[in-house]
Amino acid sequence: MSNYRRSQNQAHPNKTNALMTGILVLLILFVSIQIWFLFGALNNALRENFNFALTTFIGSSILAVASFWLLRYLPDPIDSPDNEL
């Protein structure tokens, strides 16, 4: 393979760090919103508010799918065979 990746890593050693931080921040944001939804849904479902439960469920599922999809962009581990530094 070309040495493009390696020279990139050498030129910008902080890149994976930034990517990782960005992903983590997004994930934490998603999870926080989901906790908020769940909390609201629990309180509202007890008042037999079905629409609220359904809406938060849809929102929560979208966020979960987004979280899974974000995991694709996790940078490879430094010791992965592709990433000889």
């Binding site: 983590l24 994930l27 934490i28 998603f30 999870v31 989901q34 906790i35 939804f37 769940l38 849904a41 629990l42 479902a45 079905f50 439960a53 359904l54 938060t56 469920f57 929560s60 599922s61 966020l63 979960a64 979280s67 899974f68 974000l70 995991l71």
Partner: peptide, 17 residues
């Protein structure tokens, strides 16, 4: 783990529905 947690929360919300 955050991704897993996110999935679990969605499931929990589904359980309420």
């Amino acid at each position: 783990y955050l991704g897993l947690f996110s999935g679990t929360l969605a499931l929990g919300n589904g359980a309420i529905v």
